[in-house]
Design a protein around this nucleic acid. Structure first.
Ligand SMILES: [Mn+2]
Ligand SMILES: [Mn+2]
Ligand SMILES: [Mn+2]
Ligand SMILES: [Mn+2]
Lengths: 218, 218
DNA sequence: ACAAATTTTTAGATTTGCCTAAATTTTATT
DNA sequence: AATAAAATTTAGGCAAATCTAAAAATTTGT
């Protein structure tokens, strides 16, 4: 498979929201930053290769084989993102462009050993799940921190309240986007939380917890 | 620069033995596993881009700019080889194909941080020197172990005597191609050597040392 | 020095991925 | 249901990198 084919397959996968949804030519063109006519050409090719199901004017879906290919590319993309953040000190928001290139490197051994080197991570720096070698993975969902069950872990992916005082609070307490947060316990009385972040235990009020989004799996 | 252009530049660099030598169309074609006519096309393009000096039928040399580009690709290739061996448990002879792909990833930060992650290595798993970011590096030479000066380190790259008894000896003493060997001391009397290999100190006779090739720098 | 062998370049095609412009099909609006 | 709007496909071309076949230049051998 060429680099371009792989990018198309991955985009069809994402636009199809994981599996079924029919994907339109225009939507693909926008994501690929190309023209719909070019997409038509490529879809025809992917269809001939058995990667997508396609009827003219009716949109495309991934075939079973196409889904397998998509998951392997997503796996590689996310593993490389973990590598960049964990081993090379990249931040959360710098990894995408490079991972977009690295995901196309062809070597089964490389990706297996990278997985091992990273300790078989389950989620990437954006909180998205990493498919296993055989293509299985848990769905991830976005939840406010105060709705995350005790014992769960997630990645901080956003804020509900983006006012300066709140952001200042987060900064002072060294809570940043991309941080992994583990919910240790919850106080019945006032809804305050006991969390573990970067191996440090802290307590935060319900007011704080209800303004922080976490991405968790399962 | 395209992937293909980069591979051509790198091959011209290697065939020109580091710098000056004029390189023939046929030689490039053989290394690139392509036809001489394709090489002619590409040379014309590289010449127009100012990467090589070229007069029809007279062969090519790298321009100053082309040399800079070549060294940056060689740097990337060799750093990735170190990564594969040191961090992902690849062996000596498995790294080339993958590094051939990784060397084309475009990100200055990536390669700087990889360099740091690896501890700024000076030589790759084959004993070849790694150019610095600015393109400087020491030349490497192949020497019989008994001719390596005390205090120097090198990579084991070959044997002079390839008879079964000698190979068996190497195996028993856990000396393999790709191993890094440091010459601690030399006994005047019989020429025997005290070496450090994988943090273990051993002594070997002059007879052994004169049948092992090391690649050392400077 | 000159013919033969070798090397290198040109000419003309092919494939991949992309483009613009025009035609066709589907969807939305009256 | 007819027409307008939007989405999609087709037609025809282009640039990059390759190929085969043929022509041109250089090198070799006597
Ligand atoms: Mn990509
Ligand atoms: Mn991600
Ligand atoms: Mn390469
Ligand atoms: Mn090497």
């Amino acid at each position: 498979m060429t680099l371009s084919e792989e990018d198309y397959i991955k985009i069809i996968y994402h636009l199809g929201k994981g599996e079924q949804g029919k994907v339109s030519t225009n939507a693909i063109a926008e994501k690929m930053e190309t023209k719909p006519s070019s997409v038509s050409d490529m879809i025809k090719k992917l269809s001939e290769k058995g990667l997508v199901n396609y009827k003219k004017y009716q949109g495309v879906t991934l075939s079973e084989y196409g889904l397998k290919v998509a998951l392997s590319i997503v796996r590689k993309h996310r593993l490389w993102e973990v590598f960049l953040v964990e081993k090379l000190e990249f931040s959360w928001d710098e990894v995408h462009e490079v991972a977009e290139q690295l995901e196309h490197i062809k070597s089964e051994k490389l990706i297996d050993m990278l997985d091992k080197h990273l300790g078989f991570p389950q989620i990437d720096p954006h909180g998205d799940p990493i498919p296993s070698k055989s293509g299985e993975f848990k769905k991830s969902i976005k939840r406010l921190l105060n709705e995350v069950p005790i014992g769960k872990e997630g990645i901080c992916v956003g804020v509900k309240d983006s006012s300066p005082p709140f952001l200042k609070f987060l900064d002072k307490n060294k809570i940043a986007l991309g941080d992994s947060i583990f919910v240790v316990d919850k106080e019945e009385f006032d809804g305050s939380l006991h969390i573990k972040i970067r191996d440090i235990d802290i307590r935060i009020s319900d007011q704080i917890a209800s303004n922080l989004y976490l991405r968790i799996i399962e």
